[in-house]
Simulated scan of single mutants.
Amino acid sequence: MNVLVDLGHTRRLRSPDREVLTLARTLAGSDTVTVLSHAPEPGDLAADLGGYRVATLFAPREEAPDLSRTDTALLDAALAESGANLVLGANDADTTEWFARLAVRHGAAVITDAVGVAEDRTVTKSVLAGGYTTTVVPTTDLAFITLAPNSVTTEDVDDGAAPEVTPLSVSVSGAAATVTGTTAAPASSRPKLTEAKAVVVGGRGVNGNFALVEELADELGAAVGASRAAVDAGWVEHAAQVGQTGVTVSPQLYLCAGVSGAIQHRAGMQTAQTIVAINKDENAQIFEIADFGVVGDLTKVIPQLIEALRERKGSSDPA
C-alpha cells in the first residue's frame, strides 16, 4: 500500500505523529512511506523519521504567506508526486480541513477520528460519544483518514537513515487569508489535553481549589482537565473543559475527582481505556462507567493517592 503521511506544521514529532507513522509503517508493508511537512527546512524532523522507513520527506521551499490554500496545495502536490492511495494524518482541525478539501477535489473518501485501520483499509470508529463502534470501508481508490489520539500503541524504533528531503513549490490564486500576527500559547510542562495518555479532571466537587488536581496530574505526568461546572464557575479556562461543549479525550487513564458524570461530560471522555472516579456521592452517575471508583472526600483521598505514588516512585529508584 502506498501511504502518504501529512504531519502538518510540526517540526519535531509529537505523540500523535508517532502513532500515525507507526500505523503507516504497518499498512505500507514492504512499501515505503512518504511524509509531508508544511514547515520549511525540517532538518530535525527528517532525523526523527529515520526509524519509520520513510523514503521521502516533502517540504515547502518557503513559509506559506496565507492560511489553508497553500497548505491544501502542498498536500495536493505531495499526493501527485508520491502517487499514494492512502493519506493519513492526526485528527486535528487543520488536517481535517485539508483532507476534506482534497477529498472533494479528487472524489475520494474521507474518514475522520479513526481508532484503527486494517490492512484491507477497513476503518474502525467510535461514534455518538463512544456509544457505538462502527467499521467503515472506503469505496474509492484514494482515501484520506485522520487518526484519533491514543489509538495506536507506538513502538520503539531503531535509528535509520534520514529520508531524502524534496522541496515543493506551489502557488495559489484568488483571495486568501493572510497571517497578520501570532501569539504563542503559554508554555507548560504538562502534555496537551487532547493528546495526553493520562488526564486528571476536577469538577464541581473541588470547590474552586484545583491545587490537588494539578499536583496529582504532575505526579502522573498527566494533563489537567475540568468539567463544565468548574469552567462556568470561573475556576479554570474553557480550554480545559472536557465534554460535549468542550474537548473530547480518549486517554489510557482518565482520573476524575468531584465530577458527577452528567451525560454531557461523559460524551467527551467515556472512550478512555481506564476510568477512575473519586466522589463522595456513591450515587454519582460517573460510577456507572468507571472501572474503579472511590467513594470519599477528594481532599482526603487525593493526598493519600499522591503519597502512595511518591512512595512507589521512591521504592523503584535504584539504591
Rank of each mutant, 00 (worst) to 15 (best):
L79M: 12
V127P: 14
T26W: 13
E164M: 12
N2I: 06
A46E: 05
V5C: 03
N150T: 00
N2P: 14
S188R: 07
R53K: 12
G246K: 07
R190L: 13
K300M: 12
G29F: 06
G8H: 02
D113F: 00
S151K: 01
L23R: 02
E62S: 01
V152Y: 03
A257T: 10
A187S: 15
A64G: 08
T139E: 13
G261W: 04
A73G: 00
I111Y: 01
L255W: 08
V242P: 06
N209C: 09
A148V: 01
G234R: 09
S315C: 09
G174R: 03
N207P: 08
L67D: 00
V115I: 15
S169W: 04
D48P: 10
T180R: 07
T245Q: 12
T134I: 15
A198Y: 05
S151E: 01
V199C: 07
T134V: 15
T34Y: 12
G221V: 11
A240T: 14
S315R: 15
T178I: 01
A109F: 06
W235V: 12
E19Q: 06
V242I: 14
T146S: 11
A77D: 05
L128W: 14
N279W: 13
D159Q: 13
L7D: 06
P191H: 05
R53D: 13
T271W: 02
D31Q: 15
V201K: 09
T72S: 07
A187I: 11
S227R: 09
I145E: 05
G258N: 09
F99L: 01
L57Q: 02
A267W: 04
A47S: 14
N91G: 07
A226S: 08
T182K: 10
E155N: 13
A143R: 07
A90L: 06
N283M: 03
Q304W: 03
V179D: 01
T274I: 13
V35T: 03
Q252F: 05
D94P: 12
T112P: 12
